[in-house]
Design a protein around this nucleic acid. Structure first.
Lengths: 186, 186
DNA sequence: GGCTGATGTCATCGTACGATGACATGTGCG
DNA sequence: CGCACATGTCATCGTACGATGACATCAGCC
């Protein structure tokens, strides 16, 4: 090694991270299918061929992106005090959106689809399910899935451009309004 | 003409309708991008080249499908007594789902995207908006968009296969539960 | 019955994509 | 320095797609 982390002209770790970041962003913005490896390479400032070298392929890069997201976010359920606002705010944040997208349409790649489903379940459905069970509500799993699906609709709707006001409203205001609208879930 | 509507061995109207029906189904099941003209032709039992002849191309076929749906369904808002159940039940029905999909991600084709957005607005958002205005609620448009986006999440979530119970529950039960969950919108 | 347009079939084009491998260049070590 | 490997670049392959046009076949009219 050359000492520590000085910017080398050739740095595989740097390239890998740039690809992972660009991929997370693009998967968020356009979904798995519409994101091309050439796009990822362009945004990362890295040759797309390196995707194959460092990850194995587009699918494995997607898996790495989902896995990365899986690691760092909190696991409180969606109806916890500040969690809703947090999710809305962080929607732009890379990582979460690709997981949400699978709630609305299966991915074309079976492996990527399975990973995204698992993440959706672990990260969003299950925590809420546990809350409903603890509260002794009827049909806790179904209720949890309903809330998650609804929130997915909202989050993706915000960035779809299909709604006039939903895309513009501040996350805080929306979170408050949503808490109110979903109060049947409490 | 040969008299009236006897099934001729060659019948352009018949082929046209078969293509339109198959297209509506496939656009519902897989969305615009993942539906190929070859798939449409195969399901319709018609050569895909006829899509170009009768509609102009895949995009125009999509527009025709959206337009067809636009004509025949009722325009009551989503919170009207039986409307929610009706939408859930009719989700499998060809036509509506393609309109819902645009609420969650823009279509790759600009023309198709604009048409779907307009239909989404006219068919779902605007009626609900009118209701909220009549009820004198604050932020009527935003509230309408929230409810529509949430319902889109539910409907698409049901067919995504990503949720265990949401995909299985009967439309009536789900409609009832949803009315309850969304009661903040009333 | 033969002609003309409508309808259907087929081969093919151009493009975009993910993947791959050959090759070039930099980097660190002996 | 010079070798060996790590890293980066580039050309190209195979596949899938939407579109197009040439060709074949059928229907109705004179």
């Amino acid at each position: 090694m050359t000492g520590t982390q000085e910017a080398r002209r050739r740095d595989s770790a740097r390239s890998r991270e740039a690809l992972l970041r660009a991929a997370s962003e693009l998967f968020s913005e356009r979904g798995f299918d519409r994101t091309t490896t050439r796009d990822i390479g362009r945004r990362a400032g890295v040759d797309p061929a390196l995707i194959a070298r460092y990850f194995g392929g587009k699918t494995q890069l997607y898996l790495a992106a989902v896995e990365a997201e899986r690691g760092d976010a909190p696991v409180s359920d969606l109806l916890a005090p500040d969690r809703l606002r947090q999710v809305l705010e962080g929607a732009a944040r890379r990582g979460l959106v690709p997981i949400l997208q699978v709630g609305v349409q299966p991915l074309s790649d079976p492996e990527a689809d399975a990973a995204a489903r698992a993440a959706l379940h672990d990260r969003l459905v299950e925590p809420l399910h546990r809350r409903f069970v603890a509260e002794g509500r009827a049909q806790p799993r179904l209720r949890a899935e309903i809330v998650v699906a609804a929130v997915i609709g909202i989050v993706l709707g915000r960035s779809s451009g299909a709604f006039e006001e939903l895309g513009e409203v501040a996350s805080d205001d929306l979170a408050a309004l949503l808490q109110e609208t979903l109060r049947g879930g409490e």
